[in-house]
């Protein structure tokens, strides 16, 4: 089953990256959600898959059964899920605020103006005109 999981993860990654390359900021966020799912699956596959044997110690026992599921990656995934959730919530709220301020979720517009400028990240068009005069 690991093999199928690997291919499935690859597919999810591909879809996630395709979404991230979209101009729509919301699609980017969708891509991010998928990507974090994919990362969790990588962690999960790293612990190898075990069918129907959760990592519990039965009542009365002191040791888990043989061939119990690998608990460590599960714990890591739990941590990663929660962290991704926090980051994602913040990103979502930020996109929302950015939309309120900027009025667009078009990533190319979020990059300032679409024409080339040296301070493209902040849309300081004026920079372009003076730069040669300064030299």
């Amino acid at each position: 089953m690991e093999v199928v999981l690997c291919i499935l993860t690859g597919l999810i990654v591909a879809c996630a990256i395709y979404l991230m390359l979209d101009r729509n900021l919301v699609k980017f966020l969708f891509g991010l959600v998928l990507m974090s799912n994919a990362a969790n699956l990588i962690l999960f596959s790293a612990g190898r898959l075990t069918l129907n044997s959760p990592a519990f110690i039965e009542a009365g026992e002191t040791l888990p059964p043989e061939h119990v599921a690998n608990a460590l990656p599960q714990a890591l995934i739990l941590t990663a899920i929660v962290i991704s959730f926090g980051l994602l919530a913040f990103s979502l709220v930020l996109s929302y605020r950015a939309y309120q301020e900027i009025g667009s979720v078009d990533m190319d517009e979020l990059g300032g103006n679409t024409s080339l400028s040296l301070d493209a990240d902040t849309d300081e068009r004026a920079v372009n005109n003076t730069i040669r005069a300064e030299l």
Partner: peptide, 13 residues
């Protein structure tokens, strides 16, 4: 995107 997915799959496999 597909190339990245292939990379990830290959590494995992």
């Amino acid at each position: 995107a597909i190339a990245s997915g292939v990379c990830v799959s290959a590494l995992m496999l």
